[in-house]
Design a binder for these strands. Structure first.
Ligand SMILES: [Mn+2]
Ligand SMILES: [Mn+2]
Ligand SMILES: [Mn+2]
Ligand SMILES: [Mn+2]
Lengths: 222, 222
DNA sequence: TAATAAATTTAGGCTAGTCTAAATAAAAAC
DNA sequence: GTTTTTATTTAGACTAGCCTAAATTTATTA
């Protein structure tokens, strides 16, 4: 039953999806208003409309959760967002730090057929340019056992598979330091003074990164 | 000075562009309301807003025309629309009768960079899947000396270069009869009874088409 | 020219989506 | 167990875009 949703409604759904993935419990009005950068009053308003449409479970003052339909709709939005980002990087040669805002627009284009053809055109990619998994046409996506770089035991070989922080400055930092997806590394030393990490990369080059960087990079054990 | 325009504002601009086709003569409120399928009151309302923004020249009860900026904006919308249609057909294998509605959505995506990269990715096409010229980044587009098939003298060799009617039924009719862009033909006979036309195509196959078809196909003399 | 028709504007109203300010409920701190 | 703080809802207002109905102006026709 894909009712037509406005872009505003879609953005709220996506925000609720995003916040609820972080913990799992019902999402507070407040968390949504922070994520959406709107007033709490606007959130209450929109929550009422979305639960009216059967996309949210909502009890006054007890938080909201996505219904089955709301979850599917949000997942489809994520699918579109990540496929468009992949298109922009793979086909139009955009850099991975330039595509998010564009995908925020493109994700609202309405056409299942277009999304599926785009998916096929891109070769059914499983991850987007930031390493985030792309849901398939049924809404299923890969779940990777990944860990923050800051949690990686010293000496353990691992490979960079994703970013937690998607902002342009962080992505450009990674670009300049060569700490990109697919790079293999190990932590050679953890410096107690400021929790910075001494890394040894692929070809033996070394790199010192701050705690903040370590917390925002996802790696997979090798 | 590309102020941010809403989709509604952009659609009105495009409608005015389409109705006026740069012939200078002011466009009537009524023509816009027919093109947009909205009430005359809504048109008056929007005209006021767009002339406020410097996109239209407007004097009460004397019709509107596009300003230089309004014209450039409308041309850019047409550029985006036609590039996206070309993308959908050339890259995603959509049929030419399926792409218009999708392009109506995609044309509102805001990013000069994206449009220019798409243009390059497509090889700087000069015509869209319907034979309509695509404005370049400066807003310039090819002007073809074309004539309606119904005007073509009997015996004159010509090639199909465009359609006047962009509706799905007409495009599907052309698809089924093989009367597609690039096909060479000549009119072997004009039947007085109903002004239908007997055509001889490329490989000598013949085809009888109604006056309505003749009026909605553009050809170029060979 | 006067009457009629068509086009346009004005007036007023509606919904979606936003806001601020105030009221109320729940949670945290004392 | 009060008090204070935070979260949430309510109330009221605003803009963009749309509408219908009525008023007004311009064009057409008798
Ligand atoms: Mn993104
Ligand atoms: Mn991404
Ligand atoms: Mn079109
Ligand atoms: Mn076209």
């Amino acid at each position: 039953m894909p009712e037509l949703l406005s872009q505003a409604e879609e953005n709220y759904l996506k925000a609720i999806y995003k916040v609820s993935r972080r913990d799992g419990t019902p999402v507070s009005n407040n968390a949504i208003s922070v994520e959406m950068q709107t007033s709490a009053a606007s959130v209450t308003d929109m929550i009422n409309r979305l639960s009216q449409k059967g996309l949210l479970n909502y009890q006054k003052r007890r938080g909201v959760s996505l219904t089955e339909e709301g979850y599917a709709t949000a997942t489809h939005l994520v699918r579109k967002h990540r496929l468009w980002e992949t298109f922009l990087v793979d086909k139009l040669q955009f850099s991975w730090d330039e595509v998010h805002e564009l995908a925020e627009q493109l994700e609202h284009i309405q056409s299942r057929e277009l999304v599926n053809r785009l998916d096929e055109y891109l070769g059914f990619p499983r991850y987007d340019p930031h390493g985030d998994p792309i849901p398939d046409a049924e809404g299923l996506m890969a779940e990777r056992q990944q860990v923050a770089l800051s949690q990686l035991p010293v000496g353990q070989l691992a490979v960079v598979v994703g970013v937690k922080d998607h902002t342009t400055p962080f992505l450009q930092y990674l670009e300049r330091t060569g700490l990109l997806l697919g790079v293999q590394l190990r932590v050679s030393e953890r410096l107690d003074y400021d929790n910075s990490l001494q890394l040894v990369l692929d070809q033996g080059t070394t790199l010192l990164v701050s705690q903040k960087v370590g917390q925002n990079l996802f790696v997979q054990l090798k």
